[in-house]
Design a protein around this nucleic acid. Structure first.
Length: 693
DNA sequence: ACGGCTTGCACG
DNA sequence: TCGTGCAAG
């Protein structure tokens, strides 16, 4: 227990910079302070929600076939063997004891009246697109009230801090005459519900309590907002969901599962300790597997409360610096993970298993299945390009295999990747080559004749997805921006886009025009923040006069202008993610943008008289020096900014699109996972590697 | 060598 | 950077 109290007030600093009033602490933080990994102190006052769709695949099928609503039902794939495997089960069916991972036949045994709906099949494999699209519908609604992170096909995190603060300032709960019925149905952990009491009235009192501390009031606002959002989701999509509202992601996630389906649960700070004390360790996210088992068997930890007796150092010795620190923190309800603004997946994949006798035995069957997988992948990449203007740069092939007549069964089939060329035929060709490369390695030196092989699983995936430079910039201009002079540097977006264009436009015949118009479409009927509009014009002018690099730059800039919703009208029934969010999230990860991100240009214009020194406090070798992509710095001064010199309060004044980026620089980073005993690494040493300009 | 198919992330 | 393994749903 001793660590609990210790955990409450010990940490200062970076994590709090979202609060204007506390931003000065960022500057005052001195050497000797302790700051291992991303964390927040437990005075964390964010309002975070986790939204979890109820048996989502079932709901999607029920919307398609309304006669299934209210019925015991399950979604099943591959009806061929033992009635197929269940992947989603309605709550009515769960009452009969039907579980996910049952076979169709088993489900029928315990619940004879269950309705089994098959997952759509395309090219001989399960086709999950309907569920993906339904998930996007939900995300587009949930993203309305705050930063939104698509955590999976049916789960979303929301950072509602700002919305809650705004509500608290403008229309605080204690001023409300009527409270949303859905909000009144909330579960408030720790709220005493006496036997005869009016439950809803108690919830109303809690929500409207004027004596509540600020954190509870913010949480109450969160409860109201989430109730509202959930109603919107239901109205617009017919889907129900459950939600957790808390001060961080971990607690929100715990809470969302506590009352399902179609309910929401809030975790006031005062109830955290009681909640965790007896909470089964294996039910914590990330602890459902080997790590959780290790805690149980090696440390005799069965509940989160059992973790309290271990010092940080002890946990670090066992599990490494990062995991150890993380464990110590989550045991105390501390979790600084940010809600990433990301509405779209980071990769696409298509795969299939070939169990038992269905294992593939020769190249032609591998080719057959690989072709189908690649076709599906290609379609999804096309769709991502059209809807979101993104391209993937890397193609990866995974396979599971074993050798017949061989002793070294433990040898794994290696994954292989290459740069991704668009167009189904190219992807198929490349995937097949990757497979053969993997196969050669898989053989090793073993005797091919004696040792045949079987393939039990194949998958292809596309990753490293980046935004396509597009918008006001004609393609010709765009290509001028990336002459061979760049070849030595890492202009991956450009290089890859070029590939994408040529192959998409010329290999997939009928798509050529579509792609072109997509890229060059510049309908500007959408609303663009004023700082973009004025800047956009400026940048375009600069682009027109400069030669070597500004073509590229202007493309990147103009990416901020124009909207995906203006494109591909025939597909416009689908929800389109917000381009600004999209652009921000892509830019954040792009190695290209590290050196030339729009935010630096923004600073350059705003502070043109006083260039600041900027370095990344934790970025190691990362360099935020702005230089042109061709490496010529002729007319480009070197703009250095030092993070310490940025008044954190200024961040809130920046365009929201930039705030995220800046905060990412300021955020603590993970340390290399070397286990050190006595591991209080000082801030000084943490920063020292990059503190020289 | 079966629960199947996706995703994301940490590690070396 | 690439490839592997873990975890989740």
């Amino acid at each position: 227990m001793h660590g609990w109290r210790n955990g409450l007030g010990v940490f200062n600093g970076l994590a709090r910079l979202h609060l204007k009033s506390q931003s000065s602490e960022l500057r005052s933080m001195q050497k000797g302070d302790e700051m291992p990994v991303a964390r927040r102190e437990s005075s964390d006052s964010r309002v975070i929600a986790h939204i979890d769709m109820d048996c989502f695949y079932v709901q999607v099928e029920q919307r398609k076939r309304p006669e299934l609503k209210g019925q015991p039902a399950a979604v099943v794939q591959y009806n061929s063997w033992k009635g197929g495997g269940l992947i989603a089960v309605s709550y009515e069916a769960r009452k009969y004891g039907v579980k996910r991972s049952m076979r169709g036949y088993e489900a029928k045994e315990v619940c004879p009246i269950i309705q089994l709906v098959q997952v759509p099949v395309a090219r001989g494999k399960a086709d999950l697109n309907a569920y993906r699209e339904a998930g996007s519908e939900v995300v587009s609604i949930l993203a309305r009230r705050g930063r939104c992170e698509r955590a999976s096909i049916d789960e979303v995190y929301l950072d509602l801090t700002e919305a809650a603060e705004t509500m608290l300032a403008a229309a605080p709960p204690d001023s409300l005459e009527i409270v949303n019925e859905e909000a009144l149905r909330s579960h408030i952990l720790g709220l005493n519900q006496e036997d005869n009491s009016d439950v809803k009235e108690n919830v109303r009192k809690w929500i409207c309590r004027s004596s509540a501390d600020r954190r509870d009031k913010l949480l109450a606002c969160g409860v109201l907002i989430v109730a509202d959002l959930r109603m919107q989701v239901l109205q617009d999509t017919q889907f129900t969901c459950s939600a957790g509202i808390a001060h961080n992601k971990m607690l929100a996630k715990l809470a969302s599962a506590m009352n399902k389906p179609a309910q929401q649960t809030a975790v006031p700070f005062s109830s955290v300790k009681g909640l965790l004390a007896s909470f089964p360790i294996k039910k914590m996210k990330q602890l459902g597997g080997k790590l959780g088992s290790s805690l149980q068997t090696d440390l005799c930890v069965n509940t989160v409360g059992d973790l309290w007796q271990f010092s940080q150092e002890k946990l670090q010795e066992h599990y490494g610096i990062n995991t150890g620190t993380w464990l110590w923190n989550i045991a105390r309800g501390i979790n600084g993970d940010e809600v990433e603004g990301r509405l779209l997946p980071k990769s696409h994949g298509s795969g299939k298993t070939f169990p038992g006798p269905s294992a593939l035995k020769n190249l032609s069957s591998v080719q057959h299945w690989l072709n189908g997988l690649c076709e599906e992948l290609s379609e999804r990449l096309q769709s991502d390009l059209e809807h979101n203007r993104r391209i993937a740069r890397t193609l990866t092939l995974h396979a599971h295999a074993y050798k017949t007549n061989s002793s070294d069964q433990q040898v794994k089939f290696p994954s292989k990747s290459c740069s991704l060329r668009y167009g189904s035929p190219k992807i198929q060709e490349d995937a097949m080559n990757l497979f053969q490369a993997g196969l050669r390695e898989f053989y090793g030196s073993s005797n091919v004749i004696q040792h045949g092989w079987r393939i039990t699983g194949l998958s292809v995936s596309a990753s490293k997805i980046v935004a396509v430079p597009s918008g006001t910039c004609p393609i010709t201009k765009y290509f001028q921006g990336q002459q061979p002079t760049c070849s030595s540097s890492k202009l991956l977006v450009g290089d890859c886009t070029e590939v994408a264009y040529s192959s998409v436009s010329f290999s997939e015949d009928e798509d050529a025009d579509k792609i072109h118009t997509t890229i060059s479409n510049e309908d500007s009927s959408i609303q663009v923040p004023s700082y973009y509009q004025s800047d956009g014009a400026d940048v375009s002018k600069e682009a027109a006069t400069a030669t070597s690099t500004s073509g590229r730059e202007s493309c990147l800039e103009s990416n901020l202008i124009g909207s995906p919703s203006t494109m591909s009208n025939e597909l416009s029934c689908e929800p389109k993610p917000d381009l600004h969010t999209l652009d921000r999230q892509v830019r954040k990860k792009s190695s290209v943008d590290k050196g030339k991100s729009s935010i630096l240009n923004f600073f350059r214009r705003v502070n043109s008289n006083s260039p600041l020194q900027m370095h990344n406090p934790a970025g190691g070798t990362q360099d935020h020096t702005l230089s042109h992509s061709d490496g010529s710095r002729l007319e480009t001064e070197l703009w250095h900014y030092k993070v310490d010199d940025i008044d954190p309060s200024v961040i809130d004044e920046l365009p929201p699109e930039f705030q995220e980026e800046i905060r990412a620089w300021l955020r603590p980073h993970k340390r290399p996972n070397t286990v050190k005993s006595g591991s209080n690494v000082s801030i000084a040493s943490f920063f020292s590697s990059t503190s020289t300009p």
